[in-house]
Amino acid sequence: MKTFIASIILTALISTSLAQSTSFTTFREKFIGEEDVHHFSVNGFFTRMILRMATEDEFNKAVKEVKNIRLVTVPKAAFEKQKVTVDGFKHELRKDAFEELAHAKEHGKNITLYIQSTLKHDNRYMVLIDEPYVVTLVEFRGKVDPDVLLKNGPLSFNKPQ
């Protein structure tokens, strides 16, 4: 029985690690152990549950097929300590077949949305938020309605009052 449980845990761990893109793993591992670096990961069920509680119905419907979501926040000081830059990471993203979908800049905050396409339309999305003191990287996988990406993403600042 113990062997059976161990094999299930192992399979779960392997599939979780495979679910991450190379660039996300590289980014997270680069800053492991640095001060004020936070990381969390939730599966699709929890993502949908959080969205159901926190957001509008339309958004909730659009992201029902998201399988997992990961987030890591890194202070800019850690970038300086590791002698790396956000532009350098953007270069890594391009090497990892991430293509830029949209970019927005507002109040000193740079938000870039990327996509890594797959044949099954089970795309991987990456949101890079570059603020004056902190960089946040969000990765999620699954089917997302592009309409919602546009409305709630880079153009949301332009919503009529």
Partner: peptide
């Protein structure tokens, strides 16, 4: 910094083809 900027690529518009 007082300006807001938005750029949307052709890739984003291309996603609507599959909808």
């Amino acid at each position: 910094e007082s300006f807001s900027q938005v750029t949307v690529s052709s890739k984003m518009f291309g996603l609507f083809t599959n909808m």
